[in-house]
């Protein structure tokens, strides 16, 4: 009986999925990959669902949808909990490596005001490169050990770089390269694929149910969800990166997460960032 109880959530979810699938499948028989059309549809979906929310406000996640939470957040922003991390990131960014070079030497415009261009598709590597990955590659190229991708130093560095890009619109490019289109499509597949014992996809929460509560949390809309990264989460008691967010989401569905910066996570970040093109960077952010 214990087994039956443990399997019940998955069986019920799979059963519901099975009942719903044929009707939905008939609606979407033809498949084409058109990122620009996707981004338009994505934006239209959220602006249609929440007509009173200004487009640029979606980057504020649950605060754009819940007035009580917004009031609390505005007060929290008087003394934002990410401030220590931001200061730490600024110091770290300015401090030279042991070889005398610095992060500024690894990035366009010395790394200032460029967060909105990440991730990008690297034609030489044939893969997506995220800001977190680029930072660790910069360290390793200069003889320094890489940081953990999920929090602490990496969160501090990306917090500072996001801060220098605040207000700049996401400007993710998909070059004329079939591999870039494949990476984008793979990210989209990952976003909509159900996983874990709870049979949830990213979209189950952040497309189908934004604004609704899941336990005590108000779910954020997927539109603009990465613009505020990295974030201080009260739930974590600290800062977390995009990698940490993806891993945590997978675990919450009772799925075994991928390694940070796995190709699938990189592609997911590429997709989610692209469909939020035009929305301003607001990171670092604070969330419950």
């Amino acid at each position: 009986m214990r087994s039956a109880i443990h399997l019940a959530p998955a069986v019920v979810a799979l059963t519901i999925l099975g009942l719903a699938a044929p009707k939905l499948a008939a609606l979407h028989a033809a498949e084409t990959v058109d990122p620009a059309a996707d981004a338009r549809a994505f934006r239209n979906y959220f602006t249609g669902k929440f007509p009173k929310v200004k487009l640029e406000d979606f980057v504020n996640g649950p605060y754009s949808l819940n007035a009580d939470m917004r009031r609390q957040w505005e007060e929290i922003e008087q003394f934002p909990p990410y401030e220590f991390s931001l200061d730490m990131g600024k110091e770290m960014f300015a401090k030279p490596f042991r070889n005398g070079k610095s992060y500024a030497d690894c990035f366009p415009n010395q790394g200032i005001g460029i967060r909105q261009n990440y991730p990008y598709f690297d034609g030489n590597e044939g893969k997506v490169v995220t800001l977190e990955l680029a930072l660790n590659r910069c360290r390793e190229a200069n003889g320094e050990a890489p940081f953990s991708y999920v929090k602490d130093e990496m969160a501090a560095l990306t917090a500072y770089m996001a801060f220098t890009s605040r207000g700049k619109p996401f400007d993710i490019k998909i070059p004329d390269d079939p591999r870039a289109l494949a990476a984008y499509q793979n990210g989209k597949r990952y976003f909509y694929t159900r996983r874990g014992q709870l049979n949830f996809s990213c979209a189950s929460c952040h497309v189908q149910e934004p604004g609704e509560r899941i336990r005590a949390e108000v779910l954020a809309p997927a539109l603009g969800i990465l613009n505020a990264m990295p974030i201080y989460r009260s739930e974590w008691g600290g800062m977390g990166t995009v990698s940490r967010r993806f891993i945590t989401c997978n675990i919450q569905t009772r799925g075994v997460p991928l390694d940070p910066q796995d190709d699938d996570y990189r592609d997911l970040e590429y997709y989610l960032s692209y469909v939020s093109n035009g929305l301003p960077i607001s990171g670092p952010g604070a969330r419950p």
Binding site: L7, L14, Q197, S201, A203, V207
Partner: peptide, 25 residues
Amino acid sequence: EAEALAKASILQATSEKTLWKNLEI
């Protein structure tokens, strides 16, 4: 129980190879 759970996760993964498109905006 572990085997049953693993088989359910295999079923999920194989089904989702095509079913994910049903959720797409």
